[in-house]
């Protein structure tokens, strides 16, 4: 199967590869996977006090389409607020990268990772704002 030029570009020059401090209160981490192929994807976001995403990093162990989808997702979420980032749809990723039908699940994975990261940082912030002991408990679990 031939990859589109954009997939190859993201695969060869992935944007924002790396990790953020997952214990930090302003960092949200989403780890998702595809049991069909064993791919795993970690996407992290860092927010400022206005809920705007100032940094995004990813690490994906999987096929070229999964790497490209998560690389693109980190580019897209940067500068967006959490609510804006939630609007990103996997279909937009499919369109941008010209993913074939068999690779649509890779874009779904990237969308899920963004959502998981957003939900993680929201939980952290809510817990931290209302009740410190709860935040500590959540950190343990």
């Amino acid at each position: 199967m031939a990859y589109s030029e954009k997939v190859v570009d993201h695969y060869e020059n992935p944007r924002n590869v790396g990790s953020l401090d997952k214990s930090s209160i302003d960092v949200g981490t989403g780890i998702v996977g595809a049991p069909e192929c064993g791919d795993v994807m970690k996407l992290q976001i860092k927010i400022d006090e206005d809920d705007r995403i100032v940094e995004a990093k990813f690490k994906t162990f999987g096929c070229g389409s999964a790497i490209a989808s998560s690389s693109l997702a980190t580019e897209w979420v940067k500068g967006k607020t959490l609510d804006e980032a939630l609007q990103i749809k996997n279909t937009e990723i499919v369109e941008e990268l010209a993913l074939p039908p068999v690779k649509i699940h890779c874009s779904v994975l990237a969308e899920d990772a963004v959502r998981a990261a957003i939900s993680d940082v929201k939980n952290k912030r809510d817990a931290g704002a209302s009740d410190k002991p709860t935040a500590a408990e959540q950190g343990v679990s």
Binding site: I31, G33, A34, K59, F61
Partner: peptide
């Protein structure tokens, strides 16, 4: 089916990610 339920036990995904990073 795998399509119906894509979950894994506990925090296995985080564990797999760690193993992948260590392996790399």
């Amino acid at each position: 089916s795998a399509a119906d339920c894509r979950e894994v036990p506990g925090d296995l995904l985080a564990r797999v990610m760690m193993l992948r990073e260590d392996l790399e």
